[in-house]
Amino acid sequence: MPIASNFTSILNKDWEINFLQCYPNGYLKYTELCNLFQLTAATHSELGGISFSDMQAHDQAWVLSKMRIEINRLPKWKDKVTVKTWINSLENSRSTRCLELYIGDEKMVGCETFWAVFNTNTRRPENLALPHEHFEIYADIMAVETGFSKINIAQEFELIQQRVVQLSDLDIVNHANSVKYLEWCLDCFEPELLLKKKIKSFDMNYLKEVSYLDAIEINRNHKTFSISKEGKTCFALELEY
């Protein structure tokens, strides 16, 4: 698709929190927070002509490599929120995108995401084939106070659950969607800490994709989770609470 007439390098997208997105306490689920960020990023890419549909002409797609979220306060059911997003860096096969969630003038959540261009046939990274010079880069504007961290996956983990990837876990790129990894880990986390909104921040590192009917293991060491397949780590999550 061509670049939209209303494209801007900084996008502000409004959303209303619905009941399907909330925990029983009425506050937004951490997974749905990530979905809002993912959907806003997708909207901005579509307006700027580098969406999934545009990239599929070259057998390409964006895949998430790292994500950090810092939470000041969670929105709740019926809140009207604005997600603001911009590109912090974009070069060759990689891009850093920043996102912030607001209610009015209050910043509720900050997020930094690191993406790679992925060939959907070879399943390997490659340089972005589409023009992107019309995106203004805001290298000096950050959405989080602390940058990405490399999560220590060499520590001793305890196996807490085994599962098989289902069709409902997959997205349009034909692998488990990035938010599913978080969902699997949080389903093994203490419910009272989620319901009391104790999580202050979390980092996610995506190392290898998992696909339909893959057998995976969910492991934990206190505040750190990992997901592995055939003995190799595919994902790591580190929580601060």
Rank of each mutant, 00 (worst) to 15 (best):
C98L: 10
Y212K: 14
L36K: 01
V117M: 13
Y138W: 10
T85W: 01
V179P: 00
Y23I: 00
R73V: 03
S9E: 08
C34G: 03
E217W: 06
H44R: 10
I71G: 00
S89W: 06
D14R: 12
S95C: 09
K198D: 11
P2I: 09
T8S: 15
L28I: 00
R68T: 05
N92W: 05
Q155D: 08
D14M: 08
L182Q: 00
T96H: 12
D187K: 15
N121A: 07
V173R: 06
I160G: 11
F148W: 10
T40G: 04
E136W: 03
L128P: 04
Q162P: 02
Y241E: 05
Q155F: 02
I227R: 01
G147K: 13
D105Q: 14
Q60Y: 09
L130V: 07
L99S: 14
L128I: 08
K196P: 01
E106K: 10
S226T: 15
D214Q: 12
A143S: 15
S89R: 14
L101E: 00
L64E: 02
N121L: 13
E100M: 04
L47G: 05
R220H: 04
L170M: 15
S95E: 03
K196D: 06
G231H: 09
C188D: 13
K198G: 08
V179Q: 05
L170S: 02
E209Y: 03
C234T: 08
A116Q: 09
K232F: 06
L11R: 13
A139R: 13
P125S: 11
S5G: 06
T31K: 03
E46T: 11
N18A: 12
H134I: 08
Y212C: 10
L28G: 00
E209R: 07
N219R: 15
S65H: 12
H175R: 14
K223R: 10
L130S: 10
F135R: 12
I151H: 08
N119E: 07
L101A: 02
A154K: 14
T146H: 13
E133M: 10
M204I: 08
I218F: 04
I17Q: 00
I151V: 06
F157C: 08
Q38K: 13
L20R: 09
D59W: 11
V117R: 06
K13W: 05
N205G: 07
T113G: 10
Q56A: 11
T122F: 06
T233C: 12
C22K: 01
A236D: 02
E32T: 05
N12P: 03
T146L: 11
A61L: 05
D214K: 11
N219Y: 05
P2W: 05
V179R: 01
L101T: 01
P125W: 09
S226Y: 04
D59S: 13
L170P: 01
E32C: 08
Y212L: 15
Y27D: 01
H175Q: 11
V83A: 01
E136H: 13
L36I: 05
V173N: 15
Q155C: 04
C34T: 03
F189R: 06
I141D: 14
I199R: 00
D140L: 11
L193M: 13
M67V: 04
T96K: 15
G48C: 07
K208M: 09
R94T: 07
L128C: 14
D169G: 12
S5H: 10
N219E: 14
